[in-house]
Design a protein around this nucleic acid. Structure first.
Lengths: 332, 332
DNA sequence: AACGTTGACGTCAACGTTGACGTCAACGAT
DNA sequence: ATCGTTGACGTCAACGTTGACGTCAACGTT
């Protein structure tokens, strides 16, 4: 376990100064072809690898990005994280990951830990009420890409799905099926300000027929259990419920289970539309009708936005809104 | 966006040397209570946060750990990553994550990128044929926890589930159900050396009744689609197949789907046992009978092993084998 | 009174790079 | 012959910390 080779070691071996080795390693130019070859050979032989920590100390660029999520356990998240990680790796960046459980204090702690490790930028799925935090870091010079929320600040870019449109799609579909008594299950982790899908759903309902009964509303955890509880609550408010728009597919699965458990048929008695289109959704019975969010696209856009931000300090950047799509399967 | 405060700034404000501020910040002792208070106040006021990069450069400890997985998209993985990340955070460590797609070259690249960023240790789900790589890094002084594989090397610890036992459990269960014609679907990403679950299954079969027909074997990707293909292959080899042990729950779900698509009933005509017990497994129809692996336990053990290794350089550490459990639901 | 010990600091160098700048020979243009 | 330019280096300091060691007053002991 002999100490790692440094620029100095390579320089000694070749008989040039460390600065020249650095130039070669970083492809800066300012050396002869012969020197380049001799340096490269020595680098090979000594298995020299630049020490990113030292480099980061002076350049203020660590070659790392941070991903801040609510909960990796949400099936929507992993594919996203995977995509982001792969693209970051492609750009020579290494990815930190930390989850916040949607708790702003944990988020603050996480951002601090990323900041003091000199990450070049972060991609954040923001916790409840944490925009001040994010604005603050943006102003301090940290490039931030915010997913599914909107805020204006230097060094901050936003990338979202058109969830409002998605809610509309769900409403239209349920109306077309002939549903009369609708319910919406939304998530406690999503603050009112960010309830785009619900807004879109309600608006389309209102726009399409002004005379319908206002939909029942419930709030739960964004999980299968939450969906079960949510449907029970909806049923309590509206016993002749016949159409449900669920916060995500997990909730939709829970809603379907609860409906079936209560002796109703899905979609005949209650139609259920989910959101996300996770893998699982095509494998449950009945297969879920849902709003598809293209996660691969989102990760691409998020990483692209972040590199832009990193490349041009202090800049703002257009908010990106990604289209969504209704996928009709069996549940509605 | 005024420059970040440093030890030097704090020192200037208080009227002591940076070294003293460092002592206070690191709780080293060797200062008066009065000095401590004044330093703390200045730290507060200037919002001083130690620069981990500079600290890492000199101490060779970065306060980061790396997690190397095959694919975050595998539903088994996220809960693990989440657990590891939380526990690491609890210990003041920040987690890097990178996936390898089970490709040894990508794994090498990932480990290099972690290494040059001076991670304090890594937890690895090894790619195919990559033990030399891992041994090499272990010898160079990198603490490594290897999940689900065995190797002996300095600075390396192994943590596994008792998959051999799990395979035995599955075999026993299928035998008890009266299955006669068994098949095993294993994964191409798992090299023969690491096929513990298959080994346990086959051995129990052989031990229990020496006269049975040798099981059919298939290999696929560890996905739902793979499971569908795998069952088809099994059926081609053994048309009167009546019991299947699948590599994981995703494969089991695929196998069930393919069985149903071929007009067979599950579990009446073909019983299927999965492995992992992911969330999804209780929500599909029929709900999966499976071998439960306690992911929370695994992440706890992995992190514990890693801190041990980090705490005592050069040490070896007992391999930890975690128990598994059969969960009987509907598919077998 | 002389001496060792302890506490509370300060000084300096080092960690491995890179930014800024300096040097010096070779070369072409005037 | 002189001058400016260019290429190919080298030198030095700095990034923000901490390890190793030094200093010096206060204190207790003999």
């Amino acid at each position: 376990m002999d100490r790692e080779a440094t620029l100095h070691d390579v320089a000694g071996k070749v008989g040039v100064s460390p600065r020249t080795v650095s130039r070669v390693v970083n492809d800066e130019g300012g050396y002869s072809e012969e020197t380049r070859l001799r340096v490269m050979a020595a680098v090979e032989e000594l298995r020299y690898r630049p020490n990113m920590v030292a480099r980061a100390l002076i350049t203020k660029r660590s070659g790392t990005v941070g991903l801040v999520g609510g909960d990796m356990t949400d099936p929507f998240f992993p594919a996203l994280a995977e995509g982001i990680q792969q693209r970051a790796r492609g750009a020579g960046q290494t990815m930190f990951f930390a989850s916040t459980g949607s708790d702003p204090e944990r988020q603050a702690e996480v951002l601090r830990s990323f900041w003091v490790r000199a990450v070049d930028g972060v991609i954040v799925f923001p916790a409840l009420d944490s925009i001040d935090q994010l604005t603050d870091y943006g102003e301090r010079g940290l490039p931030i890409v915010v997913v599914d929320d909107y805020l204006e600040a230097p060094n901050v870019a936003c990338v979202s799905f058109d969830l409002e449109g998605g809610g509309g799609l769900a409403a239209t579909h349920l109306l077309k099926r002939g549903c009369q008594q609708m319910g919406v299950i939304s998530a406690t982790v999503s603050p009112p300000r960010r309830r785009h899908r619900e807004r879109g759903f309600l608006r389309t309902l209102a726009d399409t027929r002004g005379d319908h009964r206002p939909p029942a509303m419930a709030q739960t955890d964004p999980t299968v259990k939450g969906g079960e509880a949510g449907l029970a609550e909806l049923l309590a408010q509206m016993p002749d419920l016949d159409g449900v728009f669920a916060y995500n597919d997990l909730v939709a699965i829970g809603a379907v289970r609860a409906a079936v458990a209560s002796g109703r048929r899905v979609p005949e008695d209650i139609a259920v539309v989910g959101c996300d289109d996770i893998e699982m959704s095509s494998y449950v019975t009945p297969a879920l009708t849902t709003i598809r969010l293209d996660r691969s696209r989102l990760s691409a856009e998020a990483v692209a936005a972040l590199s832009d931000l990193i490349g041009s300090p202090g800049a703002q950047r257009e908010t990106v809104v990604l289209p969504v799509e209704l996928v009709v399967r069996e549940s509605a």
